[in-house]
Lab assay of single mutants.
Amino acid sequence: MDSLVVLVLCLSCLLLLSLWRQSSGRGKLPPGPTPLPVIGNILQIGIKDISKSLTNLSKVYGPVFTLYFGLKPIVVLHGYEAVKEALIDLGEEFSGRGIFPLAERANRGFGIVFSNGKKWKEIRRFSLMTLRNFGMGKRSIEDRVQEEARCLVEELRKTKASPCDPTFILGCAPCNVICSIIFHKRFDYKDQQFLNLMEKLNENIKILSSPWIQICNNFSPIIDYFPGTHNKLLKNVAFMKSYILEKVKEHQESMDMNNPQDFIDCFLMKMEKEKHNQPSEFTIESLENTAVDLFGAGTETTSTTLRYALLLLLKHPEVTAKVQEEIERVIGRNRSPCMQDRSHMPYTDAVVHEVQRYIDLLPTSLPHAVTCDIKFRNYLIPKGTTILISLTSVLHDNKEFPNPEMFDPHHFLDEGGNFKKSKYFMPFSAGKRICVGEALAGMELFLFLTSILQNFNLKSLVDPKNLDTTPVVNGFASVPPFYQLCFIPV
């Protein structure tokens, strides 16, 4: 009986604490739906499609509103004006990374994606500088992407125009580009180590996009005490870190300090320079996690976009025909596509942009946080508050993009057929937390897609009208449904 009384008292205290925290903070924060004790607004949000729920709530509470995930307040920004004001106009104040408990377990605050403060700034600055020195957006990395595009075309030829699921092959190409940047090595598509790495990356994007992960991140005790797919994700990350550590040891034994070959060499050189400046942010643990982040951000996002792009091109054969006509006119058949071609191919450029806009790969991006107490639109948001960005509300804005739910390359073309930029184009987020590999991803999408369409016609196994382009999961990332196609050599 005594234990029951204690339990009831504990629960009562928890409920009172929950109510007090919510009521004391709500006077400062933007308005929002009334949260339930302990669980907050979790029942009012469709976990399978958070973005749709945010759109519905914005119609009631406006472009800036507050939700509670458990006891934790989260300020939501919906629509271009609110997102721009926060991420661009007040970029420094909104540059923090929001709480992501599962990532905390995986990387302990290291790396480039989930770190904060001085650690994040130094690692991000170093990573950007190193990638630029190796030619991100310049010639040397373009050579690597072109080489991988040629290998991709050869792998597709091996399908002999038979029906195939493109998931694996389209994942190999961007993964190999990242391998060449980090390890100075590309792998054969049949290499077992490479296959294991690909498998872990593919599993992780599916797990991260599941409703279960949303629950884990908002009720963090689940991570330590409950079984579930989150444990598989943590094991996959541990596998990748151990693999990278092996490569780091190989580099330490063979590195030429006067001739760095890749990202690992550059990081080890930085560690050597910083060894007298303790404590340094440049450690082996930081290198492991930064490399894992580059793999995660640079492989599955690009391969998922490529997979979605081919599905949309199957669905819209008239678009595919126009792209192939432009390829034939500008590039021809006797040389590989290059980035200089893009400025002469406005329709193809528009298609690449429209694919990214339409699929809305990361509907709410990753959570941000404010780095200080900030007054925002007459609300006071306390330091450390998590900020949720609705990228969907920007990419699918119906004023900027008429009929935003329709796939239409003319969203990025003017009346004369010239490519038209849009400030609403934010597939990689915006501001200080914009994806480090934005330029690389854009290069890969253009070169891989043009190389495929230069060499193959795409054949659907069903009537294009019957192809479903609805994402199968739409949590962290929008993942396309399973499909097969035939690559018919031109």
Rank of each mutant, 00 (worst) to 15 (best):
D2M: 12
S3C: 09
V5F: 15
V5Q: 04
V5E: 14
V5D: 14
V6M: 09
L7R: 00
C13Q: 02
L15W: 15
L15N: 01
L16N: 00
R21P: 09
R21F: 14
Q22V: 09
G25R: 10
R26Q: 10
R26N: 09
K28T: 14
L36V: 10
I39V: 12
I39G: 04
I39E: 02
I39S: 02
N41F: 00
L43S: 10
I47L: 15
K48P: 11
I50E: 02
K52F: 07
K52C: 11
S53L: 07
L57G: 02
L57Q: 07
V60Y: 09
Y61A: 01
Y61N: 03
Y61L: 00
F65T: 05
F65V: 02
T66E: 00
Y68R: 12
L71K: 13
L71R: 14
P73T: 06
I74G: 02
I74W: 07
V75L: 04
L77D: 00
G79E: 02
V83A: 04
V83S: 04
E85A: 08
E85K: 04
I88L: 08
E92K: 04
E92G: 07
E93G: 10
F94Y: 05
I99G: 12
I99Y: 09
L102P: 08
A103H: 14
A106I: 12
A106Q: 15
A106Y: 11
N107P: 11
S115T: 10
G117L: 04
K121Q: 14
I123F: 10
I123R: 06
R125M: 09
S127A: 13
S127T: 15
S127G: 07
M129H: 04
M129L: 11
T130V: 10
L131Q: 02
S140V: 07
E142M: 05
D143Q: 14
R144N: 09
V145E: 00
Q146A: 11
Q146E: 12
V153R: 01
K158R: 08
T159A: 05
C164V: 12
D165W: 01
G171T: 14
G171Q: 13
C175E: 01
N176T: 00
C179Q: 04
F183I: 03
K185A: 09
R186E: 02
Y189K: 02
Y189F: 05
K190Q: 08
K190M: 11
D191V: 02
D191P: 01
D191E: 07
Q193Y: 07
F194V: 06
F194P: 02
F194K: 01
L197N: 00
M198K: 10
E199M: 11
K200R: 13
N202Y: 12
N202Q: 11
K206A: 12
K206M: 15
L208T: 10
S209H: 12
P211E: 06
P211G: 10
P211V: 10
I213E: 07
I213H: 15
Q214F: 09
C216A: 14
C216V: 09
F219L: 11
P221Q: 09
Y225Q: 06
F226Y: 04
F226H: 02
P227L: 05
G228I: 05
T229K: 14
K235M: 09
F239K: 10
M240P: 00
S242I: 02
Y243Q: 08
I244A: 04
V248L: 12
K249D: 08
E250D: 08
E253T: 05
M257T: 06
M257W: 10
M257C: 09
N258G: 14
N259R: 13
F263R: 03
D265A: 05
C266L: 10
L268S: 03
L268Y: 05
M269P: 00
K270F: 06
E272A: 11
E272R: 12
H276E: 08
N277T: 09
N277P: 08
S280K: 08
E285S: 12
S286M: 12
L287M: 07
L287G: 02
N289V: 08
L294P: 01
G296Q: 15
G296S: 13
G296E: 14
G298I: 11
G298F: 04
E300D: 15
T301I: 13
T301P: 11
S303V: 06
T305K: 02
L306W: 00
L312P: 00
L312H: 04
H316A: 05
P317H: 09
K322A: 12
V323E: 02
E328D: 12
R329M: 15
G332S: 06
Q340L: 14
R342G: 02
S343M: 07
M345F: 00
V351P: 00
E354L: 00
V355A: 07
V355Y: 00
Q356M: 11
R357P: 00
Y358L: 08
I359V: 06
T364P: 02
L366K: 06
P367N: 03
C372G: 09
D373L: 02
F376W: 14
N378G: 14
L380A: 12
K383F: 02
K383E: 07
K383T: 07
G384E: 06
G384S: 06
S390T: 02
V394Q: 10
V394F: 03
H396F: 07
H396L: 06
D397Y: 04
D397A: 05
N398C: 15
N398H: 09
F401H: 04
P404K: 02
P404T: 09
D408A: 03
P409V: 08
P409A: 04
E415C: 15
E415I: 13
G417A: 09
K421R: 10
S422N: 10
S422C: 07
S422P: 07
K423A: 09
F425G: 04
F425D: 10
F425I: 04
P427L: 07
S429P: 05
C435D: 07
C435A: 04
V436A: 14
G437M: 05
G442C: 07
M443S: 08
F446C: 02
F448R: 00
L449G: 01
T450V: 09
S451G: 12
F456G: 00
F456H: 01
L458N: 00
L458S: 03
V462P: 04
P464Q: 06
N466P: 03
L467V: 10
V472G: 06
V473S: 10
N474A: 10
F476G: 11
S478A: 15
S478W: 05
P480G: 03
F482M: 15
F482P: 15
Y483K: 00
Q484G: 04
I488P: 03
P489T: 02
V490R: 13
